[in-house]
């Protein structure tokens, strides 16, 4: 009887100690091998619209998020996100919401995409290089076209076009892209 109890105690103690040892090692490793990326940057990045349009002056949404986190950039430089993004960022970072800085572009009331006037396109590929989301297809001296499903409406391709054959068109609201409007911010909610 006694021998059995000792055997059981040994087994439980040995496995328990082993588990505790591994736990300690893992805990130590978790502290030592903490990933270099800042969780704040991840949070900011998740609030940005991910259009990668670079209108904020940074190459994409993540670099802009890093710039905000380091205090280098202000939170009102994202035209595609508009007021909603600014408000969410202000909420996250505990700052005062401010109006969009129009130096970086205007917020749009309605979604737009660009369209290439294909008769006038000379196939210079300049717009392809400007497109941050690879939504333009075409080749040297071949007609180019925009894949409208991929176009984020950042308008970055309009300026480089030497023959001004790219224009903005509004996306008509259909049953496929209609969404419930965002709730209005009531005064007590904003406070």
């Amino acid at each position: 009887m006694d021998g059995m109890l000792t055997a059981m105690a040994t087994a439980i103690l040995a496995i328990g100690l082993l588990a505790a040892l591994f736990g300690l090692l893992l805990g130590y490793a978790a502290v030592r091998l903490r990933p270099a990326s800042d969780p704040v940057v991840d949070h900011i990045d998740s609030l940005l619209p991910q259009t990668q349009c670079a209108q904020c002056g940074y190459p994409g949404c993540r670099p802009y998020a890093e710039a905000i986190a380091s205090g280098e950039a202000d939170i009102n430089q994202c035209p595609p996100g508009g007021d909603n993004t600014i408000r969410a960022l202000a909420d996250l970072l505990d700052r005062e919401p401010q109006p969009l800085n129009t130096a970086y572009g205007e917020a749009k009331e309605q979604a737009t995409v660009v369209r290439i006037d294909e008769d006038r396109c000379i196939g210079c590929t300049l717009c392809i290089q400007a497109c941050p989301v690879d939504a333009i297809i075409g080749a040297q001296r071949q007609m180019h076209t925009v894949i409208e499903d991929l176009c984020t409406g950042c308008d970055l391709c309009i300026d480089p076009c030497p023959v001004d054959c790219i224009h903005r068109v509004t996306v008509p609201t259909t049953t496929r892209n209609w969404r419930w409007p965002q709730p209005e911010n009531t005064p007590d909610h904003a406070a």
Partner: peptide, 15 residues
């Protein structure tokens, strides 16, 4: 050494 080889499977799963 402790004579608890019968716990091998569970110990290995832990490892």
């Amino acid at each position: 050494p402790l004579g608890i080889e019968y716990l091998r499977t569970i110990a290995f799963i832990l490892v």
